[in-house]
Every structure is written in structure tokens, then in C-alpha cells.
């Protein structure tokens, strides 16, 4: 599945989150979008599934413009996309099994037995066999993320969007999640977009890395290209420096406000 983001701008109130961001992602690649917290990475993801609509610009998924789809077309598109949310976003009134099977229960006429099989299969893929009858409140944060991934996998998507999959989990779980993303990509040939600010994770899973800064994609290339980038902003971000153009702009901004 191919994604083409053309000059998308989006504002919330007076705050301009995206400012003519453009990005092209080829079929079957894993693209990592990096950037500081709150710079609009999640917003960009939400434009791809059509939860948010751009103020300006266009988003094409598989050659179709997302914000122009009617309801049926939008549902058909969304059934091909799995999204893993930052906090898991599991429905806490439903059991884990119902959460994972949600898309199938709601949209596909499917037998009870087959449904249970698919749910169990998806849970086993993320390494959580046999927890289908637990409630989400009984799970740890890392497990929630993996259940959320199982939910995304259960509909057999062609595109998986990950919103900060490794944030807030311990390094071992983070590593296993990274492995999972990689193996899914290798086994199922899905297109993946990973939003993160964890550079270890980015280098592990990425075919390509794009950096979002001040509402724009300022750098786009293979992990090696990004690593050797001379762009001062990219340099500061990937090396995690306290001094540099990003923090200077912030200081400048706060001085103006005072």
C-alpha cells in the first residue's frame, strides 16, 4: 500500500501543528517518523486513517484521496489499516478477546469458532497466548500495547501504523516489540509507519527515517543517511544533545512571549 502526503497543513485553534508536510512511502517499506514529543507526529498518522482531515493539502492512500472518500469507501480503507495507539486504547468495557476480535465482529460475517481461532492466533503472534478472557484493566502497560498490536493484526491489514510503540515500556519489552515489528514486516510484507522518538527503536526497524520538525518533514532517507546528516536540527535530535537549534528556537520563543 502506497502513501502519498502532499503539503498537508493542520491547525488546532491558533496553533499550527502541520505546515505543508509532504512524505511519500512506498509499498512494503517500514518508515519511521521521528520528532520531538508534541510536534504533530500522531496528528500526521491520524490524517492517514482519516480520523483528522487536513486544512490544506491532500493525503493519498493507494491512490485514493482519504478526505474525499464516502463512508463505505472509508470503512473499506480502514479495514486494510491497523493502528496501534500510544496507550493501547483498548476498550475497557470489553475483554481482551473481544478487543482483539472487534473489527471482525463488527464487520465480517464470521463463525464463532473461526473468530476464536483468529483471536488466539493474533494474540500468539504478539506472544500473549491464552489471555483472551482477561479484562484490559488486568494487564500491564506493555501487555496493553501488545494486545493493541494483536487487535491491529487480527483484521490482516496491509498497512500498520504504530504510535510510539516503545514509549513507556521497559527496555526488554521495547526490544521484543521492535523484533515484532520487524518480523511482521518480513513475514506479512505489510507497509508500516512507526512514529517514535526512541532512536534505538528507529534504527532497529526502519527502512527509511523521516524527521518532522515545526510541522514540516525536514529530512528523509535511509537510517545511514540520517545518521550522517549534517542538518543541525537532525544532528541535535538523533544524538540527543541539550544544546542546538531546536532548544535555541524554544528559548527564543519563550523570550518573545515574556
Amino acid at each position: 500500500m502506497m502513501i502519498d502526503i502532499q503539503g498537508v497543513s493542520k491547525s488546532f485553534g491558533t496553533h499550527k501543528v502541520l505546515n505543508e508536510a509532504s512524505l511519500k512511502i512506498e509499498r512494503g517499506t517500514t518508515c519511521v517518523i521521528i520528532g520531538r514529543s508534541g510536534c504533530g507526529k500522531s496528528v500526521l498518522l491520524k490524517h492517514i486513517v482519516g480520523i483528522l482531515h487536513p486544512d490544506q493539502g491532500k493525503v493519498f492512500v493507494d491512490g485514493k484521496e482519504v478526505s474525499c472518500l464516502n463512508e463505505a469507501g472509508m470503512n473499506a480503507l480502514r479495514m486494510k489499516i491497523g493502528m496501534v495507539f500510544q496507550g493501547g486504547a483498548l476498550f475497557d468495557s470489553l475483554t481482551v478477546g473481544e478487543n482483539v476480535g472487534f473489527g471482525l465482529i463488527e464487520h465480517r460475517k464470521i463463525g464463532q469458532r473461526e473468530l476464536l481461532e483468529r483471536v488466539e492466533e493474533s494474540l500468539c503472534m504478539v506472544g500473549l497466548c491464552g489471555i483472551a478472557n482477561l479484562m484490559p484493566s488486568e494487564l500491564s502497560g506493555g501487555m496493553k500495547k501488545r494486545v493493541s498490536l494483536a487487535r491491529a493484526l487480527c483484521i490482516k491489514p496491509e498497512l500498520i501504523l504504530y504510535d510510539e510503540p516503545t514509549t513507556g515500556v521497559d527496555p526488554i519489552t521495547a526490544a521484543s516489540i521492535n523484533e515484532l515489528i520487524k518480523s511482521l514486516h518480513d513475514k506479512l510484507q505489510v507497509t508500516s509507519i512507526v512514529v517514535t522518538h526512541d532512536m534505538v527503536s528507529a534504527y532497529t526497524v526502519a527502512d527509511r527515517i523521516a524527521m518532522l520538525y515545526q510541522g514540516k518533514i525536514i529530512a528523509d532517507g535511509s537510517p545511514q543517511e540520517i545518521q550522517s546528516s549534517t542538518h543541525p536540527v537532525v544532528h541535535q535530535f538523533i544524538n540527543g544533545l541539550a544544546q542546538g537549534p531546536i532548544t535555541e528556537t524554544l528559548d527564543h520563543d519563550s523570550r518573545i512571549k515574556q
Partner: peptide
């Protein structure tokens, strides 16, 4: 209930699962 669903992105999750 709906408020905490909104805060924890469950409403967005519903939409991505093609459910209004």
C-alpha cells in the same frame, strides 16, 4: 465513560476499526 475513552484514544481506535 466517553470522556475517558476520548482521553485514552479509544474513540479514535473505534474509528480506525471502521466503526462509527
Amino acid at each position: 465513560e466517553l470522556g475517558s475513552m476520548q482521553v485514552t484514544e479509544q474513540i479514535d481506535a473505534l474509528e480506525t476499526l471502521a466503526t462509527n
